Computed example of a mutant assay.
Amino acid sequence: MRQRGRTALDIADTAMDLFETHGYDATSLEEIAATAKVSVSTLHRYHATKDSLLLDHPRLQPRALATAFLARDRDQPLGHAVSDAALDFLGSADAGRPFLRRLRDCVDTVPSASARLWTYWQHETTALRAAIGTRTVTRQDELLADLLTGHALTIAIAALAEARQDQQQSARAIGADLLGVLRSSVREMG
């Protein structure tokens, strides 16, 4: 008998293989279950829909930006902690780059999954904002937390998009470049 986590991973990986081979629309939940050597009811215990096989994939770590932020030293200045958390997040994405590329290629062929990708980012935004909120005290801190949340998500999304186009550069390096541009622009404004 397989471990629960291993079963969920096997099912999701099998689904992605079948989506790539046969196409999303041509792949049924029954075919996924049979290929993964589980019953359809077992598949449904882990994933209610085909979309969830993509965006709720066990290799994706929900709240990854928030987790990266919370791992930072509490004495680190808030802006630096958020920037470093974004770079840590991008470094993790680089480590899983082949999987993420496959996943994104599948998601891009499925309109409903593409739409749910925004929901994924909204959950990341909410989780990161709550994590940053654990270090805010004043109204000014709260406003800064809102700005930093948006800044981190923008850097992450832009770096991942650019890294998808430029296979030679890491998302983390692109994120560091974007942070440099942002910091330079802020200095010019000030």
Rank of each mutant, 00 (worst) to 15 (best):
R187T: 14
A115T: 12
A26I: 08
H151C: 05
G91K: 09
S184N: 11
S185Q: 15
A161S: 15
T149K: 00
Q168Y: 02
A161W: 08
T109I: 07
A158M: 14
R72N: 06
Q122N: 15
A131F: 09
D51C: 04
A161D: 14
A68Q: 04
H22I: 13
Y120L: 12
W118N: 15
G180A: 11
E20N: 05
R164G: 13
T149D: 01
H57E: 01
T27D: 12
I157R: 15
A158Q: 10
D146W: 10
T119S: 10
T138I: 07
T7G: 04
Q61I: 11
I11S: 04
R2K: 11
I157H: 05
V186L: 15
A95Q: 10
D146N: 12
T149S: 02
T67F: 02
T27M: 03
S39I: 05
R104L: 15
Q167T: 15
P62L: 06
A64K: 03
L148S: 05
R72P: 02
L70S: 14
I157P: 08
T42G: 01
V82R: 03
I174S: 00
T42P: 04
T27Y: 00
L54R: 02
F69C: 02
L53W: 02
L179T: 11
D13S: 14
Q168S: 13
D75M: 12
A152V: 05
Q167P: 11
L179P: 03
A8Y: 06
S170G: 07
K50E: 07
D51A: 07
Q76G: 08
Q169V: 03
Q140S: 11
A145M: 05
A176K: 07
A152I: 03
G133K: 08
P98N: 08
G79I: 04
L103H: 03
D88T: 03
A64W: 00
T42K: 03
M189E: 13
Q168L: 12
A127I: 03
P62C: 08
T21I: 02
Q169N: 08
G79K: 09
T109R: 10
L144S: 11
D51V: 13
A95V: 06
D146H: 12
R172W: 00
R172I: 01
Q76H: 09
T134Y: 09
D146K: 07
V110T: 10
R97D: 10
L148I: 12
H123N: 13
E30G: 13
Y120E: 03
A145C: 09
S83L: 04
D75G: 13
A163M: 02
R45T: 08
F19Q: 00
I157M: 09
